[in-house]
Write a protein that binds this DNA or RNA. Structure first.
Ligand SMILES: [Zn+2]
Ligand SMILES: [Zn+2]
Ligand SMILES: [Zn+2]
Ligand SMILES: [Zn+2]
Lengths: 171, 171
DNA sequence: CACCGTAATGTTATACTATAACATTAGATC
DNA sequence: GATCTAATGTTATAGTATAACATTACGGTG
C-alpha cells in the first residue's frame, strides 16, 4: 500500500519534500497503467515522463528535448511530441494550454479526467485540483446552455500560499 | 437604449441573425470605452476588431493578418499582435488559449472580466458565458487552497445545441 | 529460428505562432 | 511650427508543432 504523494492539503507540495518519491511513485503507477492496457511504456516514454516529473512546474516540449540530450543520439522534436501524445492519451500528463507546457498528472488514481490547475506566477509550482463543486458548476453551465461537454481547460494563475506570504513579508 | 446583441438564452447566436448589428454594436461600444479612457481607437485597431467580430468563432492572428491584406501596405505580424495587445488590454477581445486565437468580448458592459467559453468543435461557434456559480466555485477553490487568484482560463469544448441536434438526426 | 506485420523511433524539412529591435510616421501639446 | 510620445512599419529571428518518409524494434506465427 503506497503512501499518498507528498502534498499539503492545499494541493501544493511542501517546499521541502522527498521529491524522489513523487517521481518514483509516478513512474511506478504509469508502468502499472500501461501494463493493464498493454500499452508499451518504452524507455523513451519513461524517460520523458521522468523529465516532466523532475519538477512540479509545467515544462515545455523543447526543454524536454534539451533534457534528452544525454541520449547518444539527440532526438528531434517529433520524438518528444510523440512521447507527449502517448503520455497524454493515457492520462499520464496534462497539457497546460496557457503555457504551451506539460505537467505530470497528480491524480493517476482517478480515471481519465480534465485537470484543474492552480499555477503560481512567481515560483511556477502548479497544483492539480480535482474540485467536485467546480466540476459540478461546469457541468451545470454546460447543461443550462444545451452544450454537450467533451473537453475542458481550467487554468488558474496567481500566487501560491508560499509565495503569497513571502510577498507579504517583503512588502 | 440599444437592444441587446442577438443571442439565445444559451449564449449561442441563433443560426440566422442580423450579424451586422453584432458588429456595429461591438464597434460602437468599443469606441465609447476607448473614448472614456482617452485610448486611441485608431483605424487599424478598429479594422482588426471588425475582422475579429466578423464571426462568432475565434480567429487566429495570421488569419487576421491575411484579412488585412486589403490595406495598401500588407502589414507584418507585429502590427496585428500590437493591435491584439491593445484590444485585450482594454477588454475588447479575449484570447482563447487552447486555440491560439482571439474572439470579441460578448460582455462589454461587464468591467474587466475573465471569460468562460463554450466552444463548438463542429461549427466553431463560441459563446462567452458569465456564470456566477462557476465564478464562485473557482473563487472558493482558490481560497480553500490559500491561492491568490489573478487570472483564469476556462475553455469548454464540445457540441453546441445546433450541432448536437444535427448530429443526433444524422446518426 | 526465420518471417511477417505493426508499432515505435529516427530524420529532414517545413508550417504555424510570437516577439525583439530599430526606423518611420502620425497625433497631441505647447 | 517645434517637440515629445504613441502608433505603425520593417526586418529578422525565436519558439512551438507537425508532415512525410526512412529505419529500427517488437510481438506473434509457422
Ligand atoms: Zn515532489
Ligand atoms: Zn490529472
Ligand atoms: Zn452575430
Ligand atoms: Zn468578455
Amino acid at each position: 500500500m503506497a503512501k499518498p504523494p507528498a502534498s499539503n492539503q492545499n494541493g501544493f507540495p511542501p517546499a521541502r519534500h522527498d521529491h524522489a518519491r513523487c517521481v518514483a511513485r509516478a513512474l511506478e503507477q504509469a508502468e502499472g497503467i500501461c501494463a493493464k492496457r498493454s500499452a508499451q511504456f518504452t524507455g523513451l516514454r519513461r524517460q520523458v515522463l521522468g523529465i516532466i516529473w523532475n519538477s512540479h512546474s509545467p515544462i515545455g516540449a523543447y526543454e524536454i528535448l534539451a533534457a534528452l540530450s544525454s541520449r547518444e543520439r539527440r532526438p528531434a522534436p517529433p520524438t518528444v511530441y510523440r512521447a507527449l501524445e502517448f503520455l497524454q492519451a493515457h492520462g499520464l500528463v496534462h497539457r497546460i494550454e496557457s503555457k504551451n507546457a506539460y505537467i505530470g498528472c497528480a491524480h493517476l488514481e482517478t480515471a481519465q479526467h480534465a485537470g484543474q490547475f492552480l499555477m503560481c506566477r512567481a515560483c511556477g509550482q502548479t497544483a492539480e485540483a480535482c474540485d467536485k463543486d467546480l466540476s459540478r458548476a461546469i457541468q451545470k453551465l454546460a447543461e443550462k446552455s444545451g452544450f454537450s461537454l467533451e473537453e475542458q481547460t481550467v487554468e488558474l494563475s496567481g500566487l501560491c500560499p508560499a509565495c503569497k506570504s513571502k510577498n507579504r513579508h517583503a512588502a
